[in-house]
Amino acid sequence: MTSRSNGVEVTGLHHVQIACPAGAEDDLRGFYTGVLGLPEIPKPPALAARGGCWFAVGIHHELHCGVEEPFVPARKAHPCLLVADVDAAADAVAAAGGEVRWDEAIPGMRRFHTDDPCGNRVELQQVRAS
């Protein structure tokens, strides 16, 4: 699906960036790779010097964690990660000591919210069967 307006054609979404404090990279790796299984992808050298870390989300998308000072965690804005088994994801988050906040506000949608190690809100939602 594409979107056109005023001659501009948006063809997709490449990445979402969230903020993190300096020095949080190992904690973020522990959560996004260790708990959620997202592979880390290398940042280009010029950007790596700024800190933070990037993760692959599926084949075509990325989650970028960028250093921001002063840092304030996002409590409302959030990435939503699609998972094949939301119950397994909730179990993994809980086993790692994370809070699982189920949300049934959208009928027929299995999803929950948690927080990454920096306090940023993260939503995990089950992929709907087609």
Rank of each mutant, 00 (worst) to 15 (best):
A56G: 03
K43S: 09
P70I: 08
P117M: 04
G58Y: 02
R128T: 04
H78S: 05
A56R: 14
A129I: 12
R121H: 01
T33V: 04
D85F: 04
A94R: 15
H15K: 01
E62I: 08
E99D: 13
V16R: 00
R128F: 03
A48C: 07
P45F: 01
M1I: 07
A48G: 05
R110F: 00
W54Y: 10
T114C: 08
V57N: 02
P39D: 06
V100A: 05
Q17R: 11
R128I: 00
L124G: 02
E104P: 06
L81M: 07
I41Q: 10
E40H: 07
P107N: 06
A46W: 13
L38S: 06
W102M: 03
P73T: 08
Q17L: 06
V67S: 11
W102A: 04
P73Y: 09
A77N: 13
V35C: 02
P42S: 07
F31L: 07
M109R: 15
A56I: 04
A49M: 13
A22H: 04
L47N: 07
V72Y: 01
E9H: 09
R121P: 00
P21R: 06
R50M: 12
C65Q: 12
A90E: 01
D87A: 15
A24M: 03
G7Y: 07
P44L: 09
V10R: 09
H60M: 09
T114D: 00
A46I: 12
D87K: 15
I106T: 14
I18W: 06
P39A: 03
L38R: 08
K43A: 08
A24L: 05
N120G: 02
T2I: 10
C118R: 11
C65D: 04
C65W: 08
R111P: 02
A90C: 05
P42V: 02
M109W: 11
H61C: 05
T114S: 03
C118D: 08
I18N: 05
I41H: 01
P39Q: 05
A77S: 12
Q17E: 13
G51P: 08
Y32D: 01
M109G: 03
N6S: 11
M109T: 15
V8R: 04
T11Q: 10
A129G: 14
D85H: 11
R121A: 09
S5C: 06
D116W: 04
G23F: 10
P45E: 10
N120E: 01
Q126E: 13
V10W: 09
G23I: 10
I18L: 15
L38T: 05
E68V: 15
A22E: 08
I41E: 08
A96H: 09
R75Y: 13
F71L: 00
V86Q: 03
G58C: 00
D87Y: 14
I106L: 14
R128L: 11
H61K: 08
G51H: 02
K43P: 00
E9W: 05
G23A: 02
S130H: 13
V57C: 10
A94S: 15
L81K: 01
L47E: 10
A22L: 07
A92G: 00
T11K: 11
C118Y: 12
L82W: 14
P21D: 03
F112G: 01
R29I: 13
R111K: 15
V57K: 05
R50G: 02
L13C: 02
D91E: 15
P73N: 12
T11L: 03
C65K: 08
L13N: 06
T114Q: 00
D115G: 12
A105Q: 13
C118A: 11
L38E: 01
H78A: 01
G119P: 04
